[in-house]
Amino acid sequence: MSGGHVLERAAGVPAEGPLAEALATRARLMELTEASHEAALMPAEPGGLPHDLRAALACRMTRIAGTAALADHYAAMAPGHPLASPDAAGSDAREAAILAYVDKVTRSPRDATPDDIDALRDGGVAEGDIVRLAGLVAFVNYQLRVAVVLDALGEGA
């Protein structure tokens, strides 16, 4: 089946049954989800956000959201990275600005304001990297929600 994808693997999706069939119906969408994981975590052109930082931030977000299997997946992609813990602070102004955005937009995007983007700029995050960071945060918050439901659906299958 689609056992090669990060999301289905992390959610421990059963190989057969109604959930496996439903995912097979949406196989193209699960492929595009995997391609989006690649684009968010391991892009060919990472800009000012290297792969290990992306994985550490994804680990941090999945820990904030309490999705343990995805957190393990991301922890393995950035072993020992200091920013992977939700309690860790940045070591300079740029890191601090990045963490403030990641944490706020993961926990309560409704509270975001234009000041949050200005804070990234003031912290030295380039224009293209603001978009790359927002894309990473947004993708991981999609992925972890799908994982939560796949996990719940798999239990009852």
């Binding site: 109604p18 959930l19 069939e21 439903a22 995912l23 119906t25 949406r26 969408l29 955005y101 937009v105 995007p109 409704r110 975001a112 949050d116 983007i117 603001i130 978009v131 927002a134 894309g135 945060v137 947004a138 993708f139 918050n141 999609y142 992925q143 929600r145 799908v146 439901v149 796949l150 659906l153 299958a157």
Partner: peptide, 24 residues
Amino acid sequence: TQEILDLTLSTALFGWANRLMHTL
């Protein structure tokens, strides 16, 4: 199950889109 999966995808997709639209 199919409908629950589809609902999950559309809801989670807006967890994605909202985080772009509402912050950028």
